[in-house]
Amino acid sequence: MALPPLPRPYQDTAAYWEAAKDHRFIIQKCKECGEFQFYPRGVCSHCLSSDLDWQEASGKAEIYSCSVNYRAPHPGFADATPFVLAIVTLEEGPRMMTNIIGCDPESVKIGMAVSVVFEDVTDEVTLPKFTPV
């Protein structure tokens, strides 16, 4: 079976993916302006400070939007359809893309409360995903 697209960690993102492998969900908070951000960057996207802190996120989120995808966007998803593509708003504020899993795709609705779960895709890569609370 073909693999899905997988992240190649780089300077900005290595710590995030390393934590995910340990089933920890961490996000960045700026030490200068206090804002959280997602996705991880080398600077704060609010004030351009390089003084960033990694914090354990609560893993709680709300679905901002979702779509049941019936067509595989990549050969690696051929056996995965239908799947729920979603943008969730983290309790800390930032939004992120994810999949909603562990439920009937058609039952997923905007506004639902969800929490983080970890999917070990390969020995090297774990993806944070979300499931209804």
Binding site: L6, S67, K129
Partner: peptide
């Protein structure tokens, strides 16, 4: 299967153009 750059926070979840507009 190897995603470099910020899109590694979307592509592994199966994002596509139509999926994005659907959201």
């Amino acid at each position: 299967t190897d995603v470099f750059g910020p899109s590694q926070f979307e592509e592994p979840y199966g994002v596509s153009t139509v999926g994005s507009y659907a959201l």
